[in-house]
Amino acid sequence: MDIGELETTAALAQIDLGNGDLERLGEAVSQMLAHFEKMNTVDTEGLEPTTHALVRDNRVRADDVTPSPLADAMIDQAPEREDRFFVIPNVL
């Protein structure tokens, strides 16, 4: 994978590639992608993709309120908070 594609991919994944990561990760990613090419040698014409492992259709729940008692415990885990809000640096 060329550097440009790697950087675009990293941007989409919200990961910075500094300190040699570009080369190190780039090599690992490219090696796997090359391995993935192997799939092109197999004929899958007419096959439906399998998106789910083994599921039953039509799983739904009733529209009944089940309030969670965990709101406060989760707010307590906020790296930074203000009253009941999660705080982040300002969006410009």
Binding site: E82, R84, F85, F86, V87, I88, P89, N90, V91
Partner: peptide
Amino acid sequence: MIHAGDMSLCD
């Protein structure tokens, strides 16, 4: 999100 000065508050 509520923007408040140099921070934003998430609800």
